[in-house]
Design a protein around this nucleic acid. Sequence first.
DNA 1: ACCGTGACGGTAT
DNA 2: TATACCGCCACGG
Length: 118
Amino acid sequence: MAAAVSPEAERILATVARVPKGRVASYGQIASIAGLTGRARLVGWALRNSPGGTKLPWHRILRADGRIAFPEGSDAYALQIRRLARERVAVTGGRVDLARYGWHRASSLDAMLWGPRD
DNA sequence: ACCGTGACGGTAT
DNA sequence: TATACCGCCACGG
């Protein structure tokens, strides 16, 4: 049983699962929230090695500058853009406006003030 | 055990 | 805004 991977990966994946639909977060942000500041690369590793990672909203994770982390032109690159578009997240030039779609662990109040978009 | 690679990030130039 | 470097750490060869 249990693919266990590692306690850190578990926390990382659990954090990724919390990113709301229509919002995005950076690898470093996820690492910090998971209590692993400075270990953004581990987030990428955890996602890549997550058993059945298909269930996770991995497409909501981007680089710190809002760019897609996959090589431009790759299948994953195209798929991520497609999955984001499906959530109404605009991706222009392989990049998402974090000021607009970035997840800031908002409370319901913040959600009202900021709104999902617009 | 050494070294290159990578779904990263911050700072300097 | 873009490029270059360096710090970071798990893996694979």
